[in-house]
Design a binder for these strands. Structure first.
Lengths: 189, 189
DNA sequence: GAGCATCTGTCTCCATCGAGACACATCGCC
DNA sequence: GGCGATGTGTCTCGATGGAGACAGATGCTC
């Protein structure tokens, strides 16, 4: 746990716990998960669990953050092509790939904690592209909340529209929001 | 391997290998699977593989036989209700549950070996219900082949009809076959 | 046919994991 | 309030599995 060993066994233990976590969140919601059931489902001993994580919050935090890292990386990717739009389509593609995780954590059985964490992460990403981030903290917060809501809606309704469409619609609204705040090329400019 | 330990670790190793096997059969076909790729996918060491199984044939044999055992048990179940038909519907329900396994093993990327093994198993089950099994060995073989083909068709076409319908249609044809052989209440009578 | 890559099946050694017990907390129920 | 069941987090000890090396087989390419 402290040293986070990267041997096959340790990685496997973490993977099994991750998968079990997502399954159980889907089935019963995060609150009703116990370490006992988690380890039983994952076919891992409780001792191994505590070797890898402090408690179930630590586990879910790690899992969620890993996913968010990949997500932010996908959006922030500094390719030469001038296609901000493509990046946000990539964003929703990532969400689609990890839909079980995001759906479980952001959905009814999840916990407000995750939505808040995701909002904060996106907020930082958005603010990072502002000329003077300290000047306006409201706008990034609103944009971030919008994106989280877009994801939630998209997943709860079983992705009724394509990645491209949901991305375009969300960008359009956020562009209006940013224009109102007096910001020119707002996202990933 | 010889003693087949039933500790959590040993059971987990077998489960991981089973799952990896099915995945890889679906992806590349049984022939092209190597123990290396198998253990890599399963996140298990080669040493652990050889502790649990002799080779990949041993593994697939075990996995397949486990499933067939459950299957035969489902059909042979000695309930009081006079519903032979229900049992064969149960048969197809089982097949539906294990569709990834059966589909993988019986499909194009599988190996004739499995279909043959399955036919033989069903053949024994069918013959077991004959008054004098030694008298006619052709009829059970034909009936068994029919059921295997019904399963293959059903899975390859993504289960286009319900369990009940495929069961009824298959039973109807086999009833004709059995009547022709002069056998009265043929299946599970 | 030589050379190279990959796979197999087996081995040893040591890290990690499972079993199970521990005290303590929490909860629902009578 | 007391009680039983269940959960938590930590610990020890023996079992199991990973790392990695091995010879030998197979197969592909030049």
């Amino acid at each position: 746990m402290t040293a986070r060993p990267d041997g096959l066994r340790a990685r496997r233990t973490r993977k099994l716990l991750r998968d079990a976590l997502i399954e159980l969140i889907e089935e019963r919601g995060f609150d009703r998960i116990t370490v006992n059931r988690l380890t039983e489902r994952a076919m891992v001993s409780r001792a191994a669990f505590y070797r890898a994580y402090r408690d179930k919050y630590h586990l879910v935090e790690q899992v969620f953050e890993e996913a968010l890292d990949v997500l932010v990386a996908a959006v922030a990717e500094d390719d030469c092509v001038d296609t901000r739009v493509e990046r946000w389509i990539g964003f929703f593609e990532h969400v689609g790939e990890y839909r079980r995780l995001y759906g479980a954590l952001l959905g009814d059985r999840g916990s407000p904690w995750f939505a808040a964490k995701m909002r904060a992460t996106l907020e930082r990403t958005v603010a990072g592209h502002f000329p003077d981030p300290a000047a306006d903290t409201l706008t990034p917060a609103l944009v971030a909340a919008m994106f989280v809501q877009a994801i939630t809606w998209w997943l709860e309704n079983d992705r009724p529209v394509s990645e491209r469409e949901i991305a375009l619609r969300t960008i359009r609204v956020s562009a209006a929001l940013l224009a109102d705040a007096g910001i020119g090329r707002p996202i990933n400019g």
